[in-house]
Design a protein around this nucleic acid. Structure first.
Lengths: 213, 213
DNA sequence: TAGATTGTTAATCGATTAACAATC
DNA sequence: TAGATTGTTAATCGATTAACAATC
């Protein structure tokens, strides 16, 4: 297997998509699939799929294709979905609550330990079965329980300082929904900045294109 | 100006980010900026920024740099933010409500006309000032008012059929939060599929890497 | 004018695709 | 064995970076 360190960003970003499609295939009861068939389904080329998988050491079989169950396991392993990672969520507003109630953290490899908010009327409630604690206890909690990542769903302005303090208390990654770009690569801390507006602006552009062209 | 049709995806995806940073600069009161300074701020190269802007015809000035106000206007024009596009939202669950209440559609070029849901207890309410109508009226409404795009925040299973029917009634684009991949390129309809899980799985991978390496 | 910085061309780099030998 | 399909190398393509003349 190639040293995972030098796997390109482009490849890594495709792995979750592969995983998603392979899960679908398994649900459909498909037991094996060729790179060609998968490519057609996903709108890629067979060549690219084989190249991608071979970054991690190739788990197909000549003349047969890929075993769906095995492939799923390999992809899960690559992503680290089975490592039992843990998360806390900060900011139980609309987005925070939507994630708590609807998002299946487990399917992406995380267990959501609890949530935090400053609003006294929310503290102590258990939306979706997840306990909401006082943000005043956040850093103490992080120090003691050492969750792997924090989900940031606080108001925009609070993001930068909270990010730094969380990292100082041992957080290893951030899933950032605040709209404020956070960059901690210098500290070796991965951050996924989710920008709804970028996605919608891109759609705006593409609708214009389709209209005119 | 180059024909916008042959602008690469890579460039287009960076435009919203440029726009975001330029808006920030304007708020900070900065009046002009060089490609070098902007590159440093955004973590890109000055060369790339100049290349990108020149896809649309170059709006800088030698020896001076870029005028922030003008640049903002140009980027807004490229994205089509000023075209007065309209949107409807389908599915007023947690995510739908979070978007209605917190997301500034206007900042991305859209006016949210109204929302739709099947739940009788939600129909007729006005979260964030947006009227919720009965989903039974959805297609009729779309036919009559011709909104440009639909925001899909319905349960996953409903997505594919609803997408096709909306398009049949004149919808020109979809902002899809259902987790189900929708592809309507064949019909010339742009779709932005928002996958929270892809983003979180990527973070999972990156946290593993940081841990090990 | 001299200094700064763009617009643009050329060089490099990386990612995707094509081809085919290996092998199940 | 023959057919299928991978793993892998080579060729192509596209995107990024470097360089520099144009010009404000």
């Amino acid at each position: 297997m190639a040293n995972r360190k030098d796997i390109s960003r482009a490849v890594i970003q495709r792995i979750p998509r592969y995983y998603r499609h392979i899960c679908d295939l398994q649900v459909e009861g498909v037991q094996r699939i060729s790179s060609r068939a998968l490519a057609e389904r996903m709108g890629l080329t067979a060549s690219q799929i084989r190249q991608d998988f071979n970054c991690f050491g190739g788990f197909g079989q000549q003349g047969y294709g890929y075993n769906v169950a095995k492939l799923k396991e390999e992809l899960a392993d690559i992503l680290g979905i089975d490592r039992g990672r843990t998360a806390v969520l900060v900011g139980v507003g609309n987005i925070g609550r939507a994630l708590i109630k609807n998002f299946r953290f487990g399917a992406s490899g995380f267990r959501l330990l609890c949530a935090f908010d400053v609003d006294k009327t929310v503290i102590g409630t258990e939306p979706g079965g997840v306990t909401v604690r006082d943000t005043a206890e956040l850093y103490d909690y992080v120090s003691r329980h050492q969750p792997d990542i924090a989900v940031l769903t606080v108001p925009r302005g609070l993001a930068p300082e909270m990010a730094r303090t969380l990292v100082a208390h041992g957080i290893k990654g951030l899933w950032n929904f605040t709209g404020e770009d956070i960059h901690l690569e210098g500290l070796g801390i991965p951050v996924e900045n989710v920008h709804f507006s970028d996605s919608l602006m891109t759609l705006c552009y593409r609708v214009d294109q389709a209209d005119e062209g």
